[in-house]
Design a protein around this nucleic acid. Structure first.
Lengths: 257, 257
DNA sequence: CGCCTTGTTGAAAACACTCAACTAGAGTGG
DNA sequence: CCACTCTAGTTGAGTGTTTTCAACAAGGCG
């Protein structure tokens, strides 16, 4: 899967979709309990499965939306690509995230959704999701909960902007670590981070040049080593203290069963 | 109602609560249609009505929440009051806003809710709201929609941070104008804005000193005159162009009936 | 009247940005 | 096999914006 250009590859839908919702269910179980029936109902609502190469724009703002996207593999971003001015990423998504569940209510999005790495996604047609919310009230509440946690993350991103560059980046790394750990993609020592410094810049609201200097500073103070597609954290608590990071806003306190 | 100190005044609940949900219903009608029954159901779910003086903290983070707050009059803010570092406001609320509807799902909030002006609020016990979502599915979807629009506003606040101070403030004023206009509290020429420059600073992520200089600049370029508790807008389109403001993210396109 | 908060302005310092040059590696095509 | 061309990362120097520190004016309130 090469970087520039490329198009989406629709895959067959004939196989069992249980594994597709694995990460999602793992994330849900950190917040509430998921019954077998609910899990099956989710898997049954999966429509198409697609693969997109890094750089692709999956969904464009202001277009009618007829499905919601579950990210299975890779990372993608929600971003404003305003005509003038530089790109601003407003949300980062990882495996198990319902990227645009809110489009079920809003009908069209106010932002684009683009792949930061090669990604694999599952599309949930709105008609199927809608029916799900009607027949499975508890599941409906959990989906509502997901959108509300999404908003909690947004708030933390807003608050982050009033801090220094180093704290911003450290905080972002802390958030990624917790979210990735929920779906088994991070340990206390670090995680795979296959993003460019430009991507990080657009998330932190900084320039790529300044991100570079900031990462060097974090490396020199032994807070976090971000290099070669890897984020290494020598001392997680030390990094969290530096960033003023408190993971409660992710509402993932419940230990998985 | 004086500024500092002061405590909440619980009012009687014996009267008809129809007018309490007026602004809320007006806001809902810009997004969907509200039936008489739904309106009555909302009014019936109102619990206590309270008045708080400016400066009061209505809700503290991390405490169990048993009711959601509808703002009837005045303005209040959701803010992180982190131990060290300055206060960051992550959301501004006006009449008709459900301030902490998300606490219905989250059980506890990640932020404080404080009054920026004297405010009048209605408390909706979670048990009543919960029952409402079960008996009125369409209303439940509209409440979900409200939390999702809330998140859309959050995203715009994130994106705002990568712009210059003047654009930030101008954009904030544009947003206020639209939201206040929805509930009849603003015209194209301006609105009552009884906040301190410190409040605006904490919303824009700037210092009070710099807000002061920025407001002067906006005044001198005849984009917006913010003074004496009033925001005057000589030319709304000009201000919007300057701010790069596009109101579609507020999803209030439907004209009220 | 004195105290407090809010608003206002100046000057210096800190921070992040811009512009620019250069390195390294991956992929391309002659 | 070797230029050639991308993209990503790195570093330096100068610029611009925002913050900090400080002082003072105006108004409300006890």
């Amino acid at each position: 899967m090469s970087r520039p250009g490329g198009v989406a590859s629709p895959l067959t839908n004939m196989e069992n979709n249980g594994h597709v919702v694995d990460a999602l269910v793992r994330a849900l179980e950190r917040r509430d309990s998921v019954s077998e029936r609910e899990r099956d109902a989710l898997a049954a609502a999966v429509g198409e499965i697609r693969i997109h190469p890094a750089g692709n724009t999956l969904i464009r703002a202001h277009r009618p939306a007829e499905a919601s996207t579950l990210l299975i593999e890779g990372m993608l971003a929600r971003e404003f690509s305003s005509a003038v001015g530089r790109r601003q990423i407003v949300a980062l998504h990882i495996a198990g995230d319902f990227v645009d569940l809110h489009s079920l209510l809003l009908k069209k999005l106010d932002h684009d959704v683009t792949a930061l790495t090669d990604v694999k996604v599952a599309l949930f047609p709105h008609v199927a999701l809608r029916r799900l919310t009607e027949t499975e009230p508890h599941l409906a509440r959990m989906l509502w909960l997901l959108t509300v946690i999404d908003a909690a993350v947004h708030r933390e991103w807003i608050a982050r902007t009033s801090h220094s560059a180093a704290v911003k980046v450290a905080h972002l790394l802390c958030e990624m670590q917790v979210r990735l750990a929920i779906v088994g993609l991070a340990t206390d020592q670090g995680f795979v981070l296959d993003l460019t410094q430009g991507d990080l810049a657009d998330m932190a609201g900084l320039t790529a040049v300044h991100i570079n200097r900031t990462l060097r500073k974090l490396r020199e103070s032994e807070l976090a080593i971000v290099r070669d597609g890897l984020a290494s954290i020598p001392d997680l608590q030390k990094l969290r203290d530096f960033a003023g990071f408190d993971p409660t806003y992710l509402y993932a306190e419940q230990t998985p069963r």
